[in-house]
């Protein structure tokens, strides 16, 4: 059973870490699979964690990026009240947008926490030997390409941790032409996820998916629920969904955990 912070608090207990799920991870069917995979890993390796459950709210990222600062400040105020109320110190999240906003934008509003994105968290668990990958796992020798999400990569300079995690799978990591700090956006950021794209010659996710498919990889690894959705649609537009899968690194690790 996954426990909420309220349940921990009722027993006067504090989990090792708060798992901030985020809106996509909570409601979007595709993203829920990432959430479940990550929760499964945490449970299996014995990390004590809590979720906020119904008390979690949108961080306000899409509102702020669209330009609606009032709404953002409202959401931030409420979330910080909740988090500080529980005395939260450490947060892990599967969403780079939540990660960025907690790391860079909540502190000056009074929300100061140690925040980790799940790729860094997984890398640590692997390094500490808490997460162990089974020998000859499903992805051994398979070609995987990694898509840098903007809010983990350029926004916060995290390029290595997710790649380290993928290396643990013994897969063959191939890079796209635009990778690392030159990585190309999936098209969802800045609240684009919630509106039609402006008129153009093609869609951003189509362009990016094409680049990923060109590497010949069978798996496109992502670290963001929005990227996952965008790239999945992009792969479909090229009618490659039977050959090429888009998976979050949490899903890849979960499928390769030692029994």
């Amino acid at each position: 059973m996954i426990k909420t912070m309220a349940e921990f608090a009722a027993n006067n207990e504090m989990p090792e870490v708060l798992f901030w799920v985020g809106c996509a991870g909570s409601f979007d069917q595709r993203a829920q699979r990432i959430t479940k995979a990550f929760a499964t890993i945490l449970t299996k390796v014995g990390v004590s964690f809590a979720i906020l459950g119904k008390e979690e709210m949108c961080t306000g990222d899409p509102a702020r990026r669209a330009g609606n600062e009032f709404l953002f400040q409202m959401m931030a105020y409420n979330n910080i009240q909740t988090l500080n109320g529980y005395g939260i110190k450490k947060i892990v999240t599967i969403c780079p947008h939540c990660f960025n906003i907690f790391t860079n934008e909540y502190p000056e509003l009074g929300g100061k926490y140690e925040v980790m994105h799940h790729s860094t968290f997984l890398q640590q668990l692997i390094n500490e030997g808490r997460v162990r990958i089974k020998e000859g796992g499903a992805f051994k020798g398979k070609k995987i390409t990694y898509h840098d999400s903007c809010y983990l990569g350029r926004a916060n300079g995290i390029y290595e941790a997710p790649r380290e995690v993928l290396k643990a799978l013994d897969a063959e990591l191939v890079e796209m032409k635009r990778c690392g700090s030159n990585g190309m956006c999936c098209g969802a950021g800045g609240a684009q996820m919630f509106k039609e794209e402006e008129a153009g010659t093609t869609r951003i996710n189509f362009e990016r998916a094409e680049e990923a498919i060109e590497t010949g990889a069978k798996i496109i690894a992502a670290n963001c629920p929005y990227c996952t959705t965008m790239l999945t649609d992009g792969v479909k537009s090229k009618e490659k969904e039977d050959d090429v899968k888009v998976l979050d690194i949490a899903e890849l690790i979960e499928a390769s955990l030692e029994d």
Partner: peptide
């Protein structure tokens, strides 16, 4: 999106009660 965030605490029109359904 904004009205969803304001009323449902998420950018989509889902019930906040379902946030931990997963």
């Amino acid at each position: 999106m904004s009205s969803n965030i304001e009323n449902n605490m998420a950018p989509w029109k889902f019930s906040p009660d379902d946030r931990d359904k997963w």
